[in-house]
Protein backbone atom coordinates (compact mmCIF):
# COMPACT_ATOMS: atom_id res chain seq x y z
CA UNK A 1 0.00 0.00 0.00
CA UNK A 2 1.24 3.45 -0.75
CA UNK A 3 2.29 5.87 1.97
CA UNK A 4 0.47 8.77 0.39
CA UNK A 5 -2.48 8.48 -1.91
CA UNK A 6 -4.29 11.47 -3.28
CA UNK A 7 -7.65 11.35 -5.09
CA UNK A 8 -9.21 14.34 -6.80
CA UNK A 9 -7.21 17.00 -4.96
CA UNK A 10 -8.52 20.49 -5.71
CA UNK A 11 -7.17 23.80 -4.58
CA UNK A 12 -8.81 27.10 -5.50
CA UNK A 13 -8.07 30.67 -4.52
CA UNK A 14 -11.33 32.51 -4.95
CA UNK A 15 -12.34 31.83 -8.52
CA UNK A 16 -8.90 30.68 -9.64
CA UNK A 17 -8.53 26.91 -9.76
CA UNK A 18 -4.87 26.20 -9.09
CA UNK A 19 -5.27 22.44 -8.78
CA UNK A 20 -8.16 20.80 -10.65
CA UNK A 21 -8.63 17.40 -9.11
CA UNK A 22 -5.44 15.42 -9.39
CA UNK A 23 -4.61 11.84 -8.38
CA UNK A 24 -1.19 10.60 -7.40
CA UNK A 25 0.59 8.20 -5.10
CA UNK A 26 3.85 7.93 -3.24
CA UNK A 27 4.98 4.51 -2.02
CA UNK A 28 7.17 3.80 1.01
CA UNK A 29 10.81 4.62 0.34
CA UNK A 30 10.16 6.17 -3.05
CA UNK A 31 11.48 9.44 -4.43
CA UNK A 32 8.74 10.86 -6.58
CA UNK A 33 8.87 14.17 -8.40
CA UNK A 34 6.20 16.52 -9.59
CA UNK A 35 7.43 18.70 -12.42
CA UNK A 36 5.80 21.51 -14.30
CA UNK A 37 6.14 25.12 -15.33
CA UNK A 38 5.47 28.20 -13.25
CA UNK A 39 1.86 28.36 -12.12
CA UNK A 40 1.09 24.73 -12.92
CA UNK A 41 -0.19 24.24 -9.37
CA UNK A 42 2.75 22.35 -7.90
CA UNK A 43 3.21 24.44 -4.79
CA UNK A 44 -0.54 24.63 -4.25
CA UNK A 45 -0.60 20.84 -4.31
CA UNK A 46 1.95 20.70 -1.50
CA UNK A 47 0.16 23.38 0.49
CA UNK A 48 -3.06 21.42 0.10
CA UNK A 49 -1.35 18.27 1.36
CA UNK A 50 -0.14 20.14 4.44
CA UNK A 51 -3.54 21.66 5.11
CA UNK A 52 -2.13 25.15 4.63
CA UNK A 53 -4.79 26.10 2.07
CA UNK A 54 -8.44 25.12 1.75
CA UNK A 55 -8.75 22.10 -0.52
CA UNK A 56 -11.10 19.38 -1.71
CA UNK A 57 -10.59 15.71 -2.53
CA UNK A 58 -9.27 12.82 -0.52
CA UNK A 59 -5.79 12.58 0.94
CA UNK A 60 -4.76 9.36 2.65
CA UNK A 61 -1.51 9.22 4.53
CA UNK A 62 -0.56 5.73 5.62
CA UNK A 63 -4.14 4.66 5.03
CA UNK A 64 -5.68 7.37 7.18
CA UNK A 65 -7.63 10.30 5.84
CA UNK A 66 -5.90 13.56 6.60
CA UNK A 67 -7.68 16.00 4.31
CA UNK A 68 -9.70 17.57 7.11
CA UNK A 69 -6.84 17.67 9.60
CA UNK A 70 -5.11 20.83 10.80
CA UNK A 71 -1.54 21.43 9.70
CA UNK A 72 0.01 20.64 13.07
CA UNK A 73 -1.70 17.26 13.29
CA UNK A 74 -0.60 16.43 9.74
CA UNK A 75 2.95 17.32 10.79
CA UNK A 76 2.55 15.11 13.85
CA UNK A 77 1.71 12.18 11.56
CA UNK A 78 5.07 12.55 9.84
CA UNK A 79 4.42 14.74 6.82
CA UNK A 80 6.93 17.57 6.55
CA UNK A 81 7.21 20.43 4.11
CA UNK A 82 10.31 22.35 3.13
CA UNK A 83 8.45 25.38 1.85
CA UNK A 84 9.12 27.34 -1.29
CA UNK A 85 11.48 30.18 -0.43
CA UNK A 86 12.77 28.05 2.47
CA UNK A 87 10.73 29.66 5.26
CA UNK A 88 13.56 29.65 7.73
CA UNK A 89 13.34 31.72 10.92
CA UNK A 90 15.73 34.46 9.82
CA UNK A 91 16.06 36.02 13.22
CA UNK A 92 16.85 32.85 15.06
CA UNK A 93 20.26 31.20 14.95
CA UNK A 94 20.95 28.10 12.89
CA UNK A 95 20.90 25.97 16.05
CA UNK A 96 17.60 27.51 17.19
CA UNK A 97 16.08 26.82 13.78
CA UNK A 98 17.06 23.16 14.01
CA UNK A 99 15.69 23.09 17.52
CA UNK A 100 12.33 24.35 16.22
CA UNK A 101 12.38 21.51 13.70
CA UNK A 102 12.20 19.06 16.60
CA UNK A 103 9.44 21.05 18.30
CA UNK A 104 6.90 18.24 18.45
CA UNK A 105 9.41 15.65 19.65
CA UNK A 106 10.20 14.99 23.28
CA UNK A 107 12.79 12.21 23.03
CA UNK A 108 15.85 14.23 24.03
CA UNK A 109 18.47 11.56 23.18
CA UNK A 110 16.91 11.00 19.75
CA UNK A 111 16.87 14.74 19.04
CA UNK A 112 20.52 14.98 20.05
CA UNK A 113 21.46 12.14 17.72
CA UNK A 114 19.50 13.69 14.84
CA UNK A 115 21.15 17.04 15.46
CA UNK A 116 24.57 15.45 15.24
CA UNK A 117 23.45 13.71 12.04
CA UNK A 118 22.18 16.99 10.57
CA UNK A 119 25.52 18.69 11.23
CA UNK A 120 27.28 15.69 9.69
CA UNK A 121 25.11 15.94 6.59
CA UNK A 122 25.62 19.70 6.37
CA UNK A 123 29.02 20.56 7.87
CA UNK A 124 28.54 24.15 6.85
CA UNK A 125 25.59 24.47 9.19
CA UNK A 126 27.74 23.15 12.02
CA UNK A 127 30.27 25.90 11.33
CA UNK A 128 27.53 28.49 11.48
CA UNK A 129 25.35 27.14 14.21
CA UNK A 130 25.51 30.35 16.26
CA UNK A 131 24.88 32.60 13.27
CA UNK A 132 21.52 34.19 12.51
CA UNK A 133 19.81 32.11 9.84
CA UNK A 134 18.87 35.24 7.89
CA UNK A 135 22.55 36.01 7.31
CA UNK A 136 23.24 32.68 5.59
CA UNK A 137 23.61 32.48 1.83
CA UNK A 138 20.68 31.20 -0.21
CA UNK A 139 22.15 27.74 -0.56
CA UNK A 140 22.94 27.52 3.14
CA UNK A 141 19.39 28.59 3.92
CA UNK A 142 18.09 25.80 1.72
CA UNK A 143 20.34 23.33 3.56
CA UNK A 144 19.03 24.65 6.84
CA UNK A 145 15.43 24.31 5.69
CA UNK A 146 16.02 20.67 4.71
CA UNK A 147 17.98 19.92 7.89
CA UNK A 148 15.26 21.54 9.99
CA UNK A 149 12.57 19.40 8.34
CA UNK A 150 14.68 16.27 8.93
CA UNK A 151 14.86 17.14 12.63
CA UNK A 152 11.20 16.16 12.76
CA UNK A 153 12.03 12.64 11.52
CA UNK A 154 9.58 12.85 8.64
CA UNK A 155 8.00 9.76 7.12
CA UNK A 156 7.35 11.73 3.98
CA UNK A 157 9.34 14.83 3.16
CA UNK A 158 7.86 17.35 0.73
CA UNK A 159 10.42 19.55 -0.99
CA UNK A 160 9.18 22.64 -2.81
CA UNK A 161 11.66 23.77 -5.47
CA UNK A 162 14.89 23.28 -3.56
CA UNK A 163 16.89 24.55 -6.55
CA UNK A 164 15.10 27.87 -6.77
CA UNK A 165 17.37 30.89 -6.99
CA UNK A 166 20.58 28.97 -6.40
CA UNK A 167 23.80 28.87 -8.37
CA UNK A 168 24.41 25.67 -10.38
CA UNK A 169 27.15 24.48 -8.02
CA UNK A 170 24.89 24.89 -5.03
CA UNK A 171 22.01 23.17 -6.82
CA UNK A 172 24.23 20.17 -7.45
CA UNK A 173 25.18 20.06 -3.82
CA UNK A 174 21.58 20.22 -2.68
CA UNK A 175 20.64 17.40 -5.05
CA UNK A 176 23.48 15.23 -3.83
CA UNK A 177 22.09 15.69 -0.36
CA UNK A 178 18.58 14.84 -1.51
CA UNK A 179 19.92 11.62 -3.02
CA UNK A 180 21.70 10.83 0.26
CA UNK A 181 18.54 11.43 2.28
CA UNK A 182 16.56 9.21 -0.09
CA UNK A 183 19.15 6.46 0.12
CA UNK A 184 18.73 6.49 3.89
CA UNK A 185 15.13 5.45 3.48
CA UNK A 186 13.26 8.75 3.77
CA UNK A 187 10.32 8.91 1.38
CA UNK A 188 10.37 12.10 -0.68
CA UNK A 189 8.01 14.05 -2.87
CA UNK A 190 9.97 16.60 -4.83
CA UNK A 191 8.40 19.52 -6.67
CA UNK A 192 10.62 21.09 -9.31
CA UNK A 193 10.73 23.34 -12.32
CA UNK A 194 14.19 22.05 -13.06
CA UNK A 195 12.89 18.90 -14.77
CA UNK A 196 16.30 17.68 -15.81
CA UNK A 197 17.62 17.35 -12.28
CA UNK A 198 14.37 16.13 -10.81
CA UNK A 199 14.01 13.34 -13.38
CA UNK A 200 17.59 12.26 -12.81
CA UNK A 201 17.27 11.89 -9.05
CA UNK A 202 13.73 10.46 -8.82
CA UNK A 203 12.26 7.04 -9.58
CA UNK A 204 8.83 8.12 -10.71
CA UNK A 205 7.48 11.41 -11.95
CA UNK A 206 4.26 13.28 -12.59
CA UNK A 207 4.04 16.15 -15.04
CA UNK A 208 1.66 18.91 -14.09
CA UNK A 209 0.14 21.49 -16.42
CA UNK A 210 -2.45 24.16 -15.53
CA UNK A 211 -3.64 22.37 -12.45
CA UNK A 212 -3.89 18.87 -13.92
CA UNK A 213 -1.53 15.91 -14.25
CA UNK A 214 -0.88 15.29 -17.91
CA UNK A 215 1.79 12.60 -17.82
CA UNK A 216 3.18 10.14 -15.35
CA UNK A 217 5.58 7.22 -15.26
CA UNK A 218 9.09 6.13 -14.37
CA UNK A 219 11.44 9.08 -14.46
CA UNK A 220 13.85 7.48 -16.90
CA UNK A 221 11.03 6.97 -19.41
CA UNK A 222 9.68 10.48 -19.01
CA UNK A 223 13.17 11.90 -19.51
CA UNK A 224 13.14 10.29 -22.95
CA UNK A 225 9.57 11.27 -23.76
CA UNK A 226 9.66 13.67 -26.74
CA UNK A 227 6.83 15.76 -25.28
CA UNK A 228 8.65 16.23 -21.99
CA UNK A 229 11.93 16.86 -23.72
CA UNK A 230 10.34 19.58 -25.81
CA UNK A 231 8.40 21.24 -23.01
CA UNK A 232 10.74 20.95 -20.01
CA UNK A 233 14.19 19.98 -21.12
CA UNK A 234 14.53 22.71 -23.69
CA UNK A 235 14.96 20.54 -26.77
Amino acid sequence: MSLLSVRGLKVAYGGIHAVRGIDFEVAHGELVCLIGANGAGKSSTLKGLMGLVAHGGEIRFDGERVHHAATHTIVARGLRLVPEGRGIFGRLTVAENLDMGAYIRRDTPGIKADLARAYELFPRLAERRAQLAGTLSGGEQQMLAIARALMGRPRLLLLDEPSMGLAPLMVRKIYETIATIASEGVTLLLVEQNANLALKVSQRAYVMESGAITLSGPSAELANDPQVRAAYLGE
Partner: peptide, 19 residues
Amino acid sequence: RAWGAIREDEVAAAAMGIN
Protein backbone atom coordinates in the same frame (compact mmCIF):
# COMPACT_ATOMS: atom_id res chain seq x y z
CA ARG B 1 9.58 29.29 21.72
CA ALA B 2 6.46 28.53 19.71
CA TRP B 3 5.33 32.16 20.05
CA GLY B 4 8.74 33.26 18.83
CA ALA B 5 8.40 31.02 15.78
CA ILE B 6 4.91 32.36 15.03
CA ARG B 7 6.25 35.90 15.31
CA GLU B 8 9.00 35.07 12.80
CA ASP B 9 6.99 33.18 10.19
CA GLU B 10 3.56 31.80 10.86
CA VAL B 11 3.44 29.34 7.96
CA ALA B 12 6.85 27.94 8.81
CA ALA B 13 5.77 27.68 12.45
CA ALA B 14 2.74 25.62 11.41
CA ALA B 15 5.03 23.45 9.29
CA MET B 16 7.05 22.74 12.46
CA GLY B 17 3.94 21.20 13.96
CA ILE B 18 3.04 24.19 16.12
CA ASN B 19 -0.67 24.58 16.73
